[in-house]
Amino acid sequence: MSTLAFLRADHGATAPLPRSPLAAETAAAGSSPAACRDTVGWADSSLLGKLELQAPADELAGLRAALGFEQAAAGVAARGDAGWWCPLTPTRALLLGAAGATGALAALVDGADGTAGQSAARVLDVTAQFAAITLAGPLARETIARFCALDLRPAHAPVAALRPGSVARMPGIVVREAEERYLLLFGAAYASYAWEVVADAGARLGGAAVSEDALPPINAPKEVGSHA
């Protein structure tokens, strides 16, 4: 067993399935896309695969390119086949992939790295560290404004904007995944609290909890002028 295996949420087909920190809260979420279309819908995305990569700036940039991500400026996430590449600092990035895909992601990093053995020191599965909630719909941005001071106006936070900062008084990260879709990442221990905050704000704006499959697709182009 690898020394850091105990930090991994997911261990492949043979190990027990990981349990989302929001498993209890989301039990009743509906899959109707109405909320995401008309007001705001929110879904648990906590099991999204997350890898933390730490390396000297030039090596990290090389890794990014090898994984097929375009170079992204500070404050912008790059979208690729593997998911989102989120540069947090010149020497630290977060790679967000599909749920349960961290093993595959790590293998991808290993392959891209070319210096086998080094990657273990650079890559850490942080899937369990962060819980995540995705908000989508015409009132998603307004909902977030009820508990978050980040400036997410479309002109200031275009699609793919990456905004680490305080979310509902927690350290957090916001990724604008599409015109009307925002991913909120925060510490896993805050999951219940964050869900309560989002539900409190969203319900007042007429929204509802939804299942992940009710969310609009990432980066879906949308007609201009749809902002609330």
Partner: peptide
Amino acid sequence: PNCGVREVADF
């Protein structure tokens, strides 16, 4: 320097 402009309470 990494994330951009934030309110001081972030820091």
